[in-house]
């Protein structure tokens, strides 16, 4: 360790990996992981979401999962809640849709109307 700059660099990198321990962050994505959700491919959805967030280096998003939402025919479903905004539920979210939601909704802040499920 030669300089404080070196230390700072290690710190910033390591912090990103630890962000999840600070509790829930600004934006929250909840993946429905009930029995039928998993059967419909919710696991792949989850993986795609995480992969996309990782690729983009986005750390201030909490990804959690929840149980049955009671809308089996819409699975896999995810819910996106940006700080201070109402929750938006998307249906039939396969891996590709998941990536698109990250790009459009999480990064650019635009809803992806065609996937939205109205309850």
């Amino acid at each position: 360790m030669k300089t404080l700059e070196d230390l700072k660099r290690i710190r910033e990198e390591a912090l990103k990996a630890m962000k999840v321990r600070e509790g829930e962050q600004g934006t929250k994505i909840t993946v429905a992981m009930g029995t039928c959700g998993i059967a419909a491919g919710a696991r792949e959805t989850m993986s795609a979401l995480l992969d996309e967030l990782n690729k983009r280096g986005i750390t201030d998003v909490t990804v959690t999962q929840t149980g049955c939402k009671g809308l089996c025919e819409q699975e896999p479903m995810i819910e996106v809640t940006r700080a201070g905004e109402a929750a938006v539920t998307y249906g039939h979210v396969d891996a590709e849709r998941a990536r698109r939601i990250v790009a459009e909704h999480i990064v650019n802040g635009n809803l992806v109307g065609e996937y939205i499920v109205s309850k």
């Binding site: 070196d6 660099r9 290690i10 990198e13 990996a17 989850m46 995480l50 990782n54 750390t59 990804v63």
Partner: peptide, 21 residues
């Protein structure tokens, strides 16, 4: 950049959940 910092390029990915035991 020092050697140490360079090695750090390849840090653990961001995960959705950490379990501390």
């Amino acid at each position: 950049m020092s050697e140490v910092a360079q090695e750090k390029q390849d840090l653990p990915a961001i995960e959705r959940c950490h379990v501390l035991i």
